[in-house]
């Protein structure tokens, strides 16, 4: 999404952007100065806002997430991390601004179109399909999207094979006939990550994948994430665990009160005084 990329739809995206209206002028200097990463951008937000009543959960936020590798989003509680995830995936409607997913600018992110744009996610509080089996929890995201075609589709060997592979990789193959609500918390977390992995997309949003996990489970989740990263996809994750953030991510975004506090490489950003203050002060 660099300024030099004049071909295709990306210029169209920008033509009708009323910059002042979305509060961009404050952050924005010129298109050329924008961070683009080595392989271009997987995700961008431009002046994105979201309020709940009088609370501005996300306030004219402009940030960029590069393709490939892992980007972590950190910040104190209530800094808007989860809201941002919900805005990126369309789970919450935007109040204003623009989300750019894989070079397509969207004023409205429709959740059911995000996989077409190459995006999927997990939720902060695990959201499985509780009253169906573990097996069906994976199968359901593999099958036909169009309702009438889905009516005629029975389960296909390809789908079954893929589901089996995923369940084995998250270690839940033995539990495939159990209802999802009967799993333990860690298993639920793994299943949710597996469900996201079942979707072949470029970008994965993981909202607090490590929260509340035992060390053993934690390693497993880390391995899964590394596996995704090594296959050349992009991972964006929210975490409070700074050790894991340091270990896994190659880029970090720090939010505070719905605004961007810092973004960049991990160590330099975490060393900045305002970041340290946001975490330790106040």
């Amino acid at each position: 999404m660099s300024g030099g990329d004049g071909s295709g739809g990306s210029d169209d995206v920008r033509v009708d952007l009323p910059l002042e209206e979305i509060g961009l002028s404050k952050h924005f200097h010129s298109w050329e100065n924008l961070y683009t990463g080595q392989d271009g951008l997987a995700l961008e937000t431009i002046g994105v806002s979201k309020s709940f009543g009088a609370v501005k959960a996300v306030d004219r936020l402009t940030l960029a997430i590069p393709r490939k590798g892992m980007t972590s989003i950190v910040g104190p509680n209530g800094s808007g991390k989860s809201t941002l995830m919900n805005l990126l995936s369309g789970t919450l409607p935007l109040d204003g601004g623009l989300v750019v997913i894989d070079e397509v600018g969207l004023k409205v992110v429709k959740p059911y179109e995000t996989p077409q744009h190459g995006l999927t996610r997990t939720f902060q509080e695990v959201r499985l399909f509780d009253q169906i089996s573990v097996w069906d929890n994976i199968m359901v995201v593999l099958t036909e999207r169009r309702p009438f075609a889905a009516l005629l589709e029975r389960s296909k060997p390809g789908h079954r094979q893929k589901a089996r592979g995923i369940l084995q990789s998250v270690g839940l193959w033995e539990k495939r006939d159990v209802m999802a609500q009967e799993l333990s918390y860690g298993q639920r977390k793994l299943l949710e990550i597996g469900r996201a992995m079942a979707l072949d997309v470029d970008t994965y949003l993981f909202d607090e994948p490590f929260a509340g996990l035992f060390p053993q489970m934690l390693e497993r989740v880390k391995d899964l994430m590394k596996q995704i990263r090594d296959s050349g996809r992009t991972i964006v994750f929210v975490s409070h665990n700074m050790d894991i953030v340091r270990e896994l991510s190659n880029r970090i975004i720090v939010l505070d009160s719905g605004q961007l506090l810092a973004e960049g490489d991990v160590e330099p950003v975490l060393g900045r005084p305002e970041v340290i203050e946001a975490y330790l002060g106040a």
Binding site: G90, E113, F123, L128, F129, I132, V140, L199
Partner: peptide
Amino acid sequence: EDEQAIEVFG
């Protein structure tokens, strides 16, 4: 079970 969650999967 979860309308919002399944929408995210397309």
